[in-house]
Design a protein around this nucleic acid. Structure first.
Lengths: 166, 166
DNA sequence: TGACCATATTTGGCACGCCAAGCAATTGTT
DNA sequence: AACAATTGCTTGGCGTGCCAAATATGGTCA
């Protein structure tokens, strides 16, 4: 059945615009996150932190490796890496085996920054989950993952856990 | 309990990083949406379509009115309106009562464009919902709305239905 | 009226996405 | 070995967000 019960329309017609809802939630979450990060003295942004986490997990990755995992365009990664390098958080090193590519290495300051960012992000992730039961969150995850699968480039689910969990 | 069961780790450790999941889903959805729009000959982007929908619902709104409803910065709206106006989809008209503000009017081409965009967005919204039961989607919505409420500027839920539904 | 504060919008600067194009280096083909 | 195709990365251009500052107008109050 496609049509809702026509006998009685509920007081709040239940917003069916999931695209809008998703976009709005993401935008507010991103703003809150970046605000929380700067408030905690973290200089790096959410987007940049992803690179740091991946390098902490395995140092010396290449640009392509990072952009593939993060599923962003190569050129996007160039910009992110530029800023991280300018801030002294990472270092681009020539790859002796293949002079086209470069290996990215986490600098001490970058490692410290990653940990600071991780703490904030973990906290916000808890805030997101607050007020819901595990089954609810599981369903939420399932829908998000289905969106990623349906509309993703490769149609595949990417489970590249950056670290332990949040 | 904070630690998971240590006796047996399940095959798939259930990704708990909702921030990452939400960001990824949103990004893929946005890309798919804009691809689908251009594929259908729609010249306007998702972001721009929001303005058209609001004007179709009630023409002559001001910039501030639009940016408040869409919950984007005023300056963001300036850019969006610039492009829509340059494309001939809207018109900025001086407000006789208050010369600081301007009323935005949908042009015939803009109305046509809004309808074309609406069809595509509605279709993608159906794709998002595909494979889920209504209770699942309701839970999905609830979590998204709770994120918007938790992290929104005003902490309030905005239910400005742009039209009938998707 | 004139100093002041508030409001509406724009501008400029930055972050990050995308795409298309470019460049250098590597690999494959013949 | 020589040419073509591929790969790794950067550049340039654009859209969309943000914030802070500038502009212009409007309203208040002494």
């Amino acid at each position: 059945m496609v049509m809702p019960n026509t006998r009685k329309i509920p007081p709040s017609p239940a917003d069916d615009r999931f695209i809008y809802l998703l976009f709005t939630a993401q935008q507010k979450l991103r703003n809150h996150l970046n605000t929380a990060l700067t408030a905690s003295g973290v200089k790096v942004t959410v987007a940049q932190s992803g690179i740091l986490f991946l390098l902490k997990q395995k140092d010396g990755r290449t640009m392509t490796e990072l952009s593939t995992i993060l599923e962003v365009d190569n050129s996007t990664l160039t910009g992110l890496a530029d800023r991280l390098e300018r801030a002294g958080f990472i270092r681009r090193d020539a790859n002796p085996g293949d002079r086209r590519s470069s290996n990215i290495y986490l600098q001490p300051a970058g490692l410290a920054e990653a940990d600071k960012a991780k703490a904030v992000i973990r906290r916000v992730n808890q805030e997101v989950k607050a007020g819901f039961q595990q089954p609810d969150l599981d369903m939420f995850r399932r829908v998000l993952q289905s969106i990623s699968m349906k509309f993703g480039r490769n149609g595949q689910l990417k489970t590249t856990n950056t670290e332990e969990s949040p």
